[in-house]
């Protein structure tokens, strides 16, 4: 055993949620949102292609269509969660100063939420015809 201070084995200490106390939540959510992003991104590649060259009323009609708007909201949620998790890993890998790292991780969360809120508001406004 590594330490005499505990009767617990190293395996026992990391079982359940592990030493970081959040388990594989980050990893798993990154994969789940990767799956949803894959499906939704393929749909929106076609939606965006269909918008090319369309005048404003036609573009608004497409984006405001309830079916497309719901998918857009799901994509905004899925993409923002995914990009927040991904950027957090990048920050944790390259920013080694503790205070700066915490600030960057918080800024990353703010950025993802701001992008998500602005995009979702725009889609809802287009949809409800404001």
């Amino acid at each position: 055993m590594q330490s005499n201070s505990s009767m617990r084995t190293p395996l026992g200490r990391v079982r359940g949620l592990g030493s970081a106390k959040s388990g594989t939540g980050h990893f798993w959510l990154q994969r789940v949102t990767a799956v949803s992003n894959l499906i939704l991104a393929i749909i929106f590649v076609f939606v965006v292609i269909s918008l090319v060259g369309k005048p404003y009323p036609a573009a608004v009609a497409t984006l405001g269509n309830p079916f497309i708007a719901i998918l857009a909201l799901l994509f905004i949620l899925s993409a923002c969660v995914h990009m927040r998790l991904g950027m957090q890993v990048v920050i944790e890998d390259y920013v080694h100063t503790e205070g700066l790292k915490i600030l960057a991780v918080i800024a990353n969360t703010f950025f993802a939420i701001a992008i998500g809120a602005a995009s979702a508001f725009a889609v809802l406004k287009l949809s409800f015809g404001g």
């Binding site: 573009a59 993409a79 923002c80 990009m83 990048v90 992008i115 508001f121 287009l126």
Partner: peptide, 30 residues
């Protein structure tokens, strides 16, 4: 994969701006 992920992350600013422009009216959209 990391570089493209970071690029996509930063580019969401442009996508959000485009959506907000579309929601703002014809002049902003054009």
């Amino acid at each position: 994969h990391r570089v493209t992920g970071t690029g996509l992350y930063l580019g969401t600013v442009l996508i959000a701006a485009w959506l907000v422009a579309a929601a703002s009216g014809p002049a902003a959209y054009d």
